[in-house]
Design a protein around this nucleic acid. Structure first.
Lengths: 253, 253
DNA sequence: TTTCATACCTTGGTCATACCAGATACGGAC
DNA sequence: GTCCGTATCTGGTATGACCAAGGTATGAAA
């Protein structure tokens, strides 16, 4: 646990496993910023010697960091700090969704949080280009109103455009992280279009009102309209669930 | 790359590294659902033998899965599939947020998003225990009004309690992920207490109003009060920045 | 028969060493 | 100065062994 000099270079706290030691060592430097994206960290062997652990242990820590998308391990070249990237989260959500269903509502709350804040920022910051993008997305929603697949994509694009218009990188990352979860819910909602008649009007009119509020640069109204939009969507989903559970004919499954 | 029988039990695609082989093997089963939360997977040694790789490689894969929160490695007991949990995102965000510059304001937007959504949920869901926790936090803010360190902690605790009261796990994780950034900003704000006189009243009264709004279970008001709280804090910081840049005496750092 | 203590086996945690193969760098030949 | 071959570095992997603590089966004691 000590290196050759007998020095506790990384103060191996008692009860701390070797893996944790290495992980903590790297974490510290990464969080503190002494290791920045693009930096190549020490070769595995040196790291092992430095921390007084074996190479396999160092590799375990690197794999963990790699799984989190923090570092990139380049064969026979070295391990490099990556620019944080949301793609890892996709991995995570893929696993999570494969097994747990209750997550949906909870993630939806986070989504609402992100979008409502973004729309307020959008009212303050949206550029002409942002507004045009929103307008195009709106147009696309109208065009694809009867197509589940394309319609879901258009719906998603519109909401993502709101976040983009807000201009906050962090909010964008969060939104992206929930992207496919959202996408699924969007598609699911789309499948109700033929079930519940008022749905078409809801989809088109609500999004138009949202757009108008942003264009009018009225944060409070935009926020309120967006919240209402989510609430109504929720209602539709609930109604649809009832309609399905008290069916004229079972639709399969 | 082949096991003892020469059989490609897990079809070691050419060009596929041993690590990838193991990871893919487990991923497949996890996504397909043949491995469900609670299941204990094979001991490392057996897994290694089964896939025809060495134990260190298996351990690398397990560490990766572990980092993603997919499995839990229990010393001397075995590795178990976890029920997916958003807490992993903690690690990810911690790293991601630590590495981008000028992220402060941006993260603040995400924080506002999280808290404003949480406070709305809190108005609907807060339990008596939640309210009591908020009340205690409020009391603590009053008590520590002149102590930067403790005061910052109390401030943070109050805001965290809002999120807790909201009841959304995901929002909680997001908030935690930003914890250290927030904490820093809280402390920084505290240092202004002696600079700007109205600060004391602001800190105490604002938090009390926030608490009252939650206790009154008025989502819209709570949201509005909280936003105002953040806006005013922002103003104070701006004023302080000016005061410092046109200083009577530099306060050091 | 029931209860409990103990020996043993399993399982993760770790080390040390060795070999491979591609990437890289360096130094000498042209 | 350019080009190319080789020594070296670096990650990828395998072995085999040891440790310590959780689990379990077994046998003794009540």
């Amino acid at each position: 646990m000590k290196n050759v000099n007998g020095m506790d270079i990384a103060r191996p706290n008692e009860g701390q496993t070797g893996f944790e030691l290495v992980f903590a060592f790297l974490r510290e430097r990464l969080l503190a910023g002494s290791l920045r994206p693009g930096d190549r960290l020490l070769p595995e062997r040196e790291l092992a010697a430095l921390l007084g652990v074996s190479r396999p242990i160092v590799r375990e820590a690197l794999r963990a960091l790699n799984a989190l998308g923090i570092v990139e391990i380049r064969e026979r070249s070295g391990t490099v700090v990556r620019t944080p990237d949301v793609t890892v989260l996709n991995d995570f959500f893929a696993f999570a969704l494969a097994q747990q269903d209750g997550l949906g509502d909870d993630v939806m709350q986070a989504r609402i949080a992100v979008e409502c804040q973004s729309i307020r920022l959008a009212c303050a910051n949206a550029s002409v280009a942002d507004l045009e993008r929103l307008q195009r997305a709106l147009q696309r929603i109208v065009e694809t109103i009867d197509d589940h697949e394309a319609g879901g994509a258009a719906d998603y694009a519109f909401h993502r455009a709101i976040v983009t218009a807000g201009g906050s990188r962090t909010l964008g990352v969060l939104h992206d992280a929930m992207a496919h979860v959202l996408m699924r819910s969007h598609i699911a909602r789309r499948e109700l279009v033929q079930v519940v008649a008022p749905m078409r009007a809801y989809l088109i009119e609500d999004h138009r009102r949202i757009f108008d509020a942003i264009a009018a640069r009225d944060p409070a109204r935009a926020d309120a309209v967006l919240r209402e939009h989510f609430a109504i969507g929720d209602d539709f989903r609930r109604q649809a669930a009832l309609a399905v559970s008290t069916p004229a004919r079972a639709t399969g499954r």
